[in-house]
């Protein structure tokens, strides 16, 4: 039981404050030094090799959406979590929970996509599992992947440093809005595509360009605002971001406007933020390439909080997502 809630509601899975409370409840049960870091991937040493290890489950609906599918997501999700640790992902596991009745042709499409995505990311699927459950016990197909990577250069932590500059590799909120548009049959003739893709090679280029990167994070569930809040909190430092520098494509912004969503809280699957010492910011920016933006900086004031400098120059708090965003009336 968390607070006044007796049951787990969907809000416990949306990436916001409640999800963090749930994670913390689970973490305390298994508390150990590696787990307590709570980074995207666990880091540990075996003999003299430093490894990163991560797992993720995928329950996306619909299974196929503009820009990707559950298979591609299952590979990229784990590959990216390992990459955020500064590691090179090598091997992944693949487990299916299939609801009876799933057509073989759908499974075929998903596995082909997994094969393609794994090849693109340079990882091998080396172990796996299949379970079939009765109708209603799952929704068509759920996938779990876990992965192992090697830390070659240096590992990334969860704490930013004072005066770090924050860089993002492209426009936000595309995955979440693409899924929403596909799932709810909104009927918007939209060109929005999910940004789902593997980030390991971009991360590698960043690490090569600078030795002064402190944190990387892929802002998935809960969006950019949530990731920034997590880092401000774990670093016990303030963060200031500039609204006008945060890239959002016009079609994504419009759909957000129509539905009353704030793109800062919408999920991404192919974006990462990189906290780096100011002197190396341009090097990292160029290493990532086109579409990369400097969106803010770490400050020593208002510790643990994120502030947004709005378009018109006012400064206001950018809080953690409190409850699920709900589509509005008008």
């Amino acid at each position: 039981m968390i607070g006044i809630d007796k049951n787990i509601t969907l809000a416990y899975g949306n990436g916001g404050r409640l999800m963090h409370e749930l994670i913390d409840m689970l973490r305390s049960k298994f508390s150990n030094k590696i787990l307590n870091e709570l980074s995207d991937a666990a880091e540990f040493k075996v003999n003299s090799t430093r490894l990163a290890f991560s797992t993720d489950s995928f329950v996306v609906k619909p299974l196929f959406f503009p820009g990707g599918d559950i298979g591609k997501l299952a590979v990229c999700g784990t590959v990216n979590d390992i990459s955020m640790k500064g590691a090179t992902p090598l091997f992944i596991s693949l487990a299916f929970i299939i609801e009876e009745g799933l057509e073989f042709s759908i499974l075929e499409r998903i596995t082909s996509s997994i094969k393609q995505s794994a090849a693109k990311a340079g990882v091998l699927v080396v172990t796996g599992d299949v379970k079939v459950v009765e109708k209603g016990a799952a929704d068509k197909i759920f996938i779990n992947t876990a992965g192992i990577g090697v830390i070659k250069k240096y590992s990334l932590g969860t704490k930013a440093k004072p005066d770090d500059v924050i860089i993002i590799n492209g426009p936000i909120a595309e995955h979440g809005m693409a899924i929403l548009n596909a799932r709810e049959n909104l009927g918007f003739l939209s060109t929005i595509k999910s940004d789902c893709r593997n980030l390991n090679f971009e991360v590698k280029r960043c690490l090569k360009a600078s030795k002064n990167i402190s944190v990387m994070r892929d802002p998935t569930r809960g969006g950019l605002a949530t990731s920034l809040n997590e880092i401000a909190y774990s670093s016990n430092l303030g963060i200031e971001v500039y609204e006008k520098s945060i890239p959002v494509r016009a079609n994504v912004r419009k759909l957000c406007d129509v539905l009353g969503f704030d793109p800062m809280y919408v999920a991404n699957e192919g974006k990462f933020i990189c906290f780096v010492k100011e002197k190396d910011a341009m090097k990292v920016k160029h290493a990532i390439g086109k579409g990369t933006r400097i969106i803010g900086k770490v400050t020593s004031s208002h510790k643990g909080e994120v502030y947004l400098k709005t378009q018109i120059g006012a400064s206001r708090i950018l809080p953690m997502l409190e409850a699920d965003q709900l589509p509005r009336i008008c």
Binding site: G260, R316, I317, P319, E322, A323, R328, I329, C330
Partner: peptide
């Protein structure tokens, strides 16, 4: 998350706006 009154619920509610944007 646990609104007592409607102004805290809606994406257009005054209390929700004050809460969210400090």
């Amino acid at each position: 998350r646990k609104p007592v009154g409607p102004c805290m619920v809606s994406s257009e509610g005054t209390c929700a706006a004050y809460y969210r944007y400090g």
